[in-house]
Nucleic acid binder design. Sequence first.
RNA 1: GCGCCUCUAGCUCAAUUGGCAGAGCAACGGACUCUUAAUCCGCAGGUUCUGGGUUCAAGUCCCAGGGGGCGCACCA
Length: 478
Amino acid sequence: MTDSIPYKFDKTHDILDLRQKYEGKIEPGETTEDYVTIAGRLMLSRPQGKIFFGNLTDWTGTVQLFAQENSLTNFRDLTKMSLGDWIGASGYMMRTKKGELSVKLNSFVPLAYTKHGFGDKYKGITDTDLRYRHREVDLWANESTLKVFLARSKVISYIRRYLQDKGFVEVETPILNKIAGGATAKPFVTYHNSLGTDFYLRIAPELYLKRLVVGGFEKVFEIGRVFRNEGLSTRHNPEFTLLELYQAYVDYTDLMVLCENLIYELALMINGTSEVAVGNKLIDLKPPFRRATMEELIFESINERVNVHIPLNELQEIAKKHNVTFDESWMSGKLVLEIYEKTTESDLEGPVFVLDYPKEVSPLARTHRDDELLVERFECIIAGRELGNAFSELNDPKDQLERMTDQARQKKQGDSEAMDVDYDYVRALEHGLPPTGGLGIGIDRLVMLLTGATAIRDVILFPTLKPVEAEFDGDSEN
RNA sequence: GCGCCUCUAGCUCAAUUGGCAGAGCAACGGACUCUUAAUCCGCAGGUUCUGGGUUCAAGUCCCAGGGGGCGCACCA
């Protein structure tokens, strides 16, 4: 059967092209002289005796096919095609008497047959297991899925263009890391045979990128996969896509401007409006975003003054009062962050830049110019979710070494997410890192926000799932 | 890792207090010259996730396991 399938097929138009060119331009019942060739999947089929109607869908849209027995030699074959089969077709642009824009076929050729009749033609596929494990089915059976992933692709290319237009240069740094640095997270471990050594999959590209700034890359970014060996949820996948950018000579206030403008322009590009729907609320992403310190936001939420200058025992009392569980060994910085995350963060509708984090929990950020116990850092929160994280980068090698040493001590004491000392990185700082601002944005969560997806799995083509034993139930086996 | 929910035909879903496992769509055969999830006629389609147990009788109740979802915890 597949012997008759051609090796190539030249189409003249995407279906969207046809819609843009002909929608509203042809009178009902009129057939034009304009000859087009299109290809896609036959998604609906309505043969009706000596005439035929069907819907052909490609990745840009759907158009109706119209055929008559006396003007299409293989008319009978067309009426026998199954839903989901791929076909290529040529014919004249027309509108039916009832007004539907259509292509009046005078030839068609099957391009592939689908052997599995899956997909309810009204409801599509709703089984989440099938949708995630066999995304190719989800993509063709559910129109909205393809749209989400096309939007994701647009977001990423737009970010590249946006940054390149501002003079940023894209680089690639190692995924196999001897030390998993640049964030606090549990890494995956793997092994290199001929070097005879373990490597970690990167948890962030941060340290390498700053080494490039030391080397002279004044504006640099990377968009890439990072890996964190932690739980799965609607907001977490073990591998996810991170944008990190570093710009010499700027501080975190400059990055707020860059961040809010980028998000705003992406919203306009994807949705044509700066408002995005989250649940049943509308959030406007028009800059400027609110800037507020962590202390201010906690106060608004629970009416308590919480900051790192308050004695530890008082902070512990506040935590208890608001049902925030903590470990007695925590120092005030970690406790302040915990109180913020448990009482305040998820209620922040935003968009808001949360400013000035405790130094203790930010080992790569530069000490705040006005407060020794804080760092110049912000997180961008929208709809209770952290989308971005940025700081004025710590560029003092001595300070960096002390903070990493402190982290390593915490790791030894059982904090599996604390960092190791990265001497190569400290040495890089000794070569001189100019004042630099760095920003990271979680691309998956950004795409969720822009497309209205409620689960990170809906914006990752092949999300991490528990493996199941492969069962082959196809009919190609015999 | 813990708790709750869920799994029935290719897809979407039914099945009353435990009582013969069903429908729509798809597929297959046929009718039909303006349909829009076309309509009409016909035919076929099952290890009810798996394994135990209770019972005269289990899709349904119980136990164990597997997949998925949600929540918690960890985190971005």
